[in-house]
């Protein structure tokens, strides 16, 4: 009912992203509603961070990376090369996974953005510092040492400082990439509470690994898997009654739980056509319904092997990174 009155704030059309050949996002079309919290969920490496980096074109800073398609915010296509990207960026705050305070005092961190955008008046800057530190829930803890270095704050405090700093340039949208994963539970809770308050004034997009966090915060959910959009909708529907089997599996935790496998092959050191052949061979030797575990270390294989196996009619139950280079793919025949 109230959903009918919702406006969309960010409209993503046919978004594709590549890292020097690696196809990280495929044909994503989705709308992000205004003044709501939209959670992006999905297993590690599915392209969640890449998705956010397209919004503020931070992806431009990565060598060999590019994005195509459209991301329309307030009538402007962010991916259009001819727009003023600094203006787009100031309209989207980013809260990173690991807090990244700037090498200056707490005060200067908050005023960095406003000063860049031309505010010089000391009184006004003082007001900005107080206002946004209060919104971020940090004011009481730091009001007596605004001139001390930001790096001296605890990690949780640093994250709230980053929130205040982002808000001080008066964005309309807040992007968060796993904003609480580096924090202790109390600081994490603190950030979550601030986000819930902020949603009255801002459109919030949050990437999270934590299904419970998504359930606590999200009004809308976007489920990505291997660079594709699997499911998208109001949180209540997606969590209670997912349309897609893969979403159900992810939410129920089967994606991440330890599956009992019937066979295992190690394809480390192999490149792609061979990866397929060996995986197919191994599946061929199993009877229907049995599970095969495949370990790969070739980046393209991480997305291509599951895709290929699904094309062959098998079911991919999980893809997860087990260490820096290796990935484990579980396939059901």
């Amino acid at each position: 009912m109230e959903n009918l009155s919702l406006k969309n704030h960010i409209s993503i059309q046919d978004l594709n992203a590549f890292y020097s050949g690696h196809h990280a996002l495929r044909d994503i079309t989705v709308e992000i509603p205004q003044k709501q919290i939209t959670a992006i969920i999905g297993p590690s490496g599915c392209g969640k961070s890449t998705f956010l980096k397209c919004f503020n074109r931070l992806i431009d800073l990565t060598d060999g990376a590019r994005a195509s398609g459209k991301i329309i915010v307030g009538g402007i296509d962010v991916l259009d090369g001819s727009i003023d990207i600094t203006d787009v960026r100031r309209r989207m705050g980013l809260l990173p996974q690991k807090p990244n305070p700037l090498p200056m005092s707490i005060y200067d961190n908050v005023t960095y953005g406003p000063r860049i955008h031309g505010i010089k008046d000391k009184k006004r800057l003082d007001g900005i510092v107080e206002k946004y530190l209060k919104i971020a829930g940090l004011w009481d803890e730091v009001k007596d040492r605004l001139k001390s270095p930001a790096s001296k704050l605890s990690i949780g405090q640093q994250q709230r400082l980053c929130l205040a700093r982002g808000l001080a340039v008066e964005p309309e949208i807040i992007l968060c990439d796993e904003p609480t994963s580096a924090l202790d539970p109390l600081s994490a809770q603190h950030i979550e509470q601030q986000l819930l308050k902020l949603k009255n004034d801002y459109t919030i997009v949050i990437v999270t690994h934590n299904i419970h966090q998504a359930m606590r915060l999200a009004d809308y959910v976007v489920h990505l898997y291997l660079g594709e959009l699997v499911e998208y909708g109001p949180a209540s529907e997606v969590f209670k009654n997912p349309k897609e089997e893969r979403t159900r599996a992810y939410i129920n935790g089967t994606f991440l739980a330890d599956l009992k496998t019937d066979a295992e092959i190690n394809l480390k050191g192999n490149v792609c056509p061979y990866n397929f052949m060996y995986a197919k061979q191994a599946l061929h030797d199993l009877s229907n319904g049995k599970l095969l575990k495949v370990v790969v270390d070739y980046p393209t294989a991480v997305t291509e092997v599951p895709r290929g196996m699904e094309a062959d009619g098998h079911k991919v139950l999980s893809v997860k990174q087990i260490n820096k280079t290796d990935w484990e793919i579980v396939i059901q025949k």
Binding site: L58, L61, T86, L94, P96, L102, P103, G166
Partner: peptide, 27 residues
């Protein structure tokens, strides 16, 4: 100078020059 510091500055709407003078040189 860590990339994240430059990214922080860019996401606040700073240009390359502002980032270089305001963050890179400081760090």
């Amino acid at each position: 100078v860590p990339e994240e510091l430059k990214e922080a500055s860019y996401t606040l709407g700073a240009t390359k020059l502002e980032t270089t003078l305001g963050v890179v040189v400081k760090q």
